[in-house]
Design a protein around this nucleic acid. Structure first.
Length: 333
DNA sequence: TTGTGTTTTATTGCCTCC
DNA sequence: GGAGGCAATAAAACACAA
């Protein structure tokens, strides 16, 4: 026996002298261990012969008090019709597990609700009240606690699952919102980009018209030939475009535009600005629009040559968000 | 009636506490 | 070292469909 534990389930002895306990099994039972519970050892046993534990002691007084019936605590008798024959046969059987009656279980359940742990005094009292062995009461509480724990785990699991489902739904909603907002920002970015290009074109045309009406006061490059002047103008326009586009790239931080400008630069044969190639989902239409806007006619623009292309990106295309808000693009759970 | 799955009662071994 | 709790498990009792 582990830990020096002594089990009382198969045999018990003695009786509660305060009641008219009848030691039924003492008449014919046999057992292999000694009675152990002190409360049941206190009284002199009416018979030296041992008896079966689980059905060893039945207080008929208790039974009568509880139900007014002869054998209310023994389920096998609940649906017996043969009376004494079965009763006799029942106690002639080799030891079998027997379920507690409904009344006993109900009593124990009520007791369990009050307190799910069992102090020795309470155990003995319950055993007396129910006509059971204290050990049986202890086992019942033990098993009841195990069942309660299992149920509790199931409840906790259910609560956790509901919580998870709620969170998942929220997450999905937020993800949808995020995608929606992202698409909206891209759309607005496109519009803003187009508007800026259009404005720039208008401005350039106006300046060109002004210049073409006035006689050239000074050549752009005094030593430059006509072909060189043309070349310089191309570079000027290109650089202006690059500057503008570059600014847009930094401002929007969008792969969309990075790709568009990059391809434009490559078309222009200018490799001075090398941007990381990106996987853009830019549509063909958008790409065309961008190309049209970026590739401007080679107007001569002396002032544009002086432009500082290393300027940090302007914040003109931040869409009202601070720069750090661009973390939006990489925002995720 | 029987096979099968579930529930209940009881045992065993291990662990902690006093 | 004994008492008692717990997890794992055995086994009887029970429920129920085929």
């Amino acid at each position: 026996m582990a830990g020096g534990r002594m089990y009382t389930s198969s045999c018990s002895g003695g009786g509660d002298s305060s009641t008219l306990s009848v030691l039924i099994q003492s008449q014919k039972g046999s057992c292999s261990s000694q009675p152990l519970d002190a409360s049941f050892l206190s009284g002199p046993s009416p018979s030296p012969s041992p008896f079966l534990g689980s059905r060893s002691m039945v207080s008929f007084e208790d039974i009568h008090l509880a139900n007014g019936s002869n054998r209310p605590f023994f389920r096998p008798f609940d649906h017996d019709e043969n009376g004494d024959d079965d009763f006799d046969e029942y106690f002639h059987q080799p030891e079998k597990k027997r379920r507690l009656t409904g009344d006993q279980v109900q009593f124990l359940e009520k007791s369990f609700e009050v307190e799910n742990k069992l102090e020795p005094e309470r155990k003995i009292q319950l055993a007396k009240d129910l006509g059971l062995q204290p050990r049986q009461v202890a086992i019942w509480f033990q098993n009841r606690r195990a069942r309660w724990k299992t149920k509790q785990l199931e409840k906790d699991y259910e609560i956790l699952q509901n919580s998870y489902n709620t969170l998942k739904a929220d997450y999905d909603d937020i993800l949808k919102d995020k995608e929606k907002l992202k698409a909206e920002v891209l759309l607005l970015t496109d519009k803003l980009q187009l508007k800026e290009k259009e404005d720039k074109n208008t401005e350039l045309c106006a300046v060109k018209n002004t210049l073409s009406q006035e006689p050239p006061q000074k050549p752009i490059a005094e030593s430059a030939s006509e072909g060189e002047v043309s070349k310089v103008s191309i570079v000027a326009c290109k650089q202006e475009d690059i500057s503008s586009a570059k600014s847009d790239i930094f401002d929007s931080d969008s792969p969309h535009y990075t790709d568009g400008v990059h391809s434009s630069l490559l078309e222009a044969g200018d490799s001075s600005y090398v941007f990381e190639p990106d996987q853009s989902d830019l549509s063909q239409d958008e790409d065309d629009n961008l190309s049209k806007n970026v590739l401007l006619p080679p107007y001569i623009f002396p002032k544009l040559e002086e432009a500082d292309y290393t300027d940090p990106p302007t914040s003109s295309c931040n869409f009202g968000f601070p720069i750090e808000d661009h973390a939006f693009w990489s925002w995720s759970y």
